[in-house]
Structure formats: structure tokens, C-alpha cells
Design a protein around this nucleic acid. Structure first.
Length: 226
DNA sequence: CACCAGGCAAGTA
DNA sequence: TACTTGCATGGT
């Protein structure tokens, strides 16, 4: 089976299992970007608390985040973990957004995707996954987001090498899938959902909707991605 | 109690 | 370039 067919079959089964996820949950593109920073190496559950704090203190806007003292921002970001780092990273992003695009996500979205991606990666605290999450989920650009679960799931099923780097894995999806923003959004969300439920340190591959993949040297038991 | 979560940058050799 | 370490709360 071709990689394309296999990926689409994975997607079909995951959709069948979980239905549409509707990810990313946020009211505005800016809120997506804030969430993307806060969720670095952190469960969404903890991020929700931080977002809620920011909302309750009316700090979830470009202006408010820009004006707020770092210490106050850090206080609200606390439940998301790494809060001193992340509050500074939010500041970095907002400074960038204001400096380059007058604080407008809409204006930022007009930048050609490749160039914008490079510029986002230049902001301290925004790495590949955070940049791509902003591009895809906040701005609707056709960029596939890769994360730890994506790598773990694909390598465990023998579809890529375990040591595949971020760019290679991203290209794998973008080359083998139709260039469809809704598909990219939903597929990545489903991979995370599946990973979180079935692919943790004690994998439950017998219950995983992806366990139909057996013909590619899959070694689902005991293989840890890290 | 130990371990880990949807990363990232900075330091070392 | 390749590897290591710090960052931090909250859930299991």
C-alpha cells in the first residue's frame, strides 16, 4: 500500500473512532497562538487553566499582554508549567507581532507562508511545532504540525525511521497527503488524541484504532520513542 | 513516591 | 554538528 493510501486509511479509522475533534479550541487566532506557546511540553488540561486565568484578568489580547508586567503575566501562566519561560516567550511573540505587523494577526497572515515561518522561528521561544501550530490553526496555512506523538506513532508502525527529524516528518505528511487545511488540522488533532490515549509508556496497542497496521515491521510493544 | 506531559534554547566539546 | 541540561505545574 502506498504511503498516501495508508495515511488516508489511518485518518479514516481515526475519524470513525473519535469523530471530528474540532481542534483547536480558541475564540480568536491570537488565542491560538498564545495556547501554542503555553502548551509546549505540557498537557492541554494545564494550559486551559492558564488561559482561563488570562481571560479572567482581561489579559488575552495583544494590547493587554503587551502592557502587562512580566511578573503578572507569569502569575497567570503558572498552571501551564515553565511559567517564567513561557511568559517571556509570550512577550517575545507579542513584541514580534507588534513590531512586524502592527499587532495584527490578519496582517501577519498576509506574509507568504515560507517567509513567515522563518520569521516565527526567529522569535526566541518559538520552535518548529509552535510555529507550525500558529500557521495551521491560527492562520489556516497548509502546514502539517508534527509533535512527539506523531513521531512515536509513525515510527512504531515502521512508516518512518525512529530518528527522523522534524522537517523530514513534516515533509512526509505534506507530500503524501492532499494539500487540505481541514485535513491537516483534523489529522494532527486525531494523532494527538490517539497518542494520548493508546501510545503512552504502557501502550495499549490492542485497543488502538491504528493496530490494523501490521505489515510494515511494526513493533508496537516496548518500543519507546525517546 | 516516581515519572511524565502536544518543546525549546543555551551550553559544552 | 551532536549531545546534554534546565525549565515547573499537575495528573497518574
Amino acid at each position: 500500500m502506498s504511503d498516501t493510501k495508508l495515511l488516508l486509511e489511518m485518518y479514516r479509522r481515526l475519524t470513525e473512532e473519535f469523530g471530528p475533534t474540532g481542534w483547536w479550541p480558541a475564540r480568536t487566532p491570537f488565542e491560538v497562538a498564545v495556547g501554542a506557546v503555553l502548551t509546549q511540553n505540557t498537557t492541554w488540561r494545564n494550559v486551559e487553566k492558564a488561559i482561563k486565568n488570562l481571560k479572567e484578568h482581561r489579559m488575552l489580547s495583544v494590547r493587554a499582554l503587551s502592557r502587562a508586567p512580566l511578573s503578572k503575566l507569569a502569575q497567570q501562566a503558572r498552571p501551564a508549567g515553565y511559567y517564567r519561560l513561557k511568559s517571556q516567550r509570550l512577550k517575545n511573540f507579542v513584541d514580534f507581532l507588534r513590531g512586524e505587523y502592527g499587532g495584527s494577526m490578519v496582517r501577519m497572515a498576509r506574509e507568504p507562508t515560507d517567509r513567515l515561518r522563518e520569521k516565527l522561528l526567529g522569535v526566541t521561544g518559538i520552535g518548529p511545532e509552535t510555529a507550525d501550530s500558529i500557521l495551521l490553526y491560527a492562520l489556516g496555512k497548509p502546514v502539517f504540525v508534527v509533535d512527539a506523538y506523531t513521531r512515536r506513532i509513525l515510527s512504531r508502525h515502521g512508516m518512518v525511521e525512529q530518528e527522523v527529524n522534524y522537517e523530514e516528518l513534516r515533509r512526509f505528511f505534506e507530500q503524501h497527503l492532499p494539500r487540505d487545511v481541514s485535513l491537516f488540522k483534523e489529522f494532527h488533532a486525531l494523532l494527538v488524541r490517539t497518542g494520548a490515549q493508546f501510545c503512552k509508556r504502557e501502550p495499549r496497542c490492542d485497543q488502538c484504532p491504528l493496530n490494523f497496521i501490521t505489515a510494515r515491521g511494526a513493533s508496537p510493544r516496548g518500543t519507546r520513542a525517546k
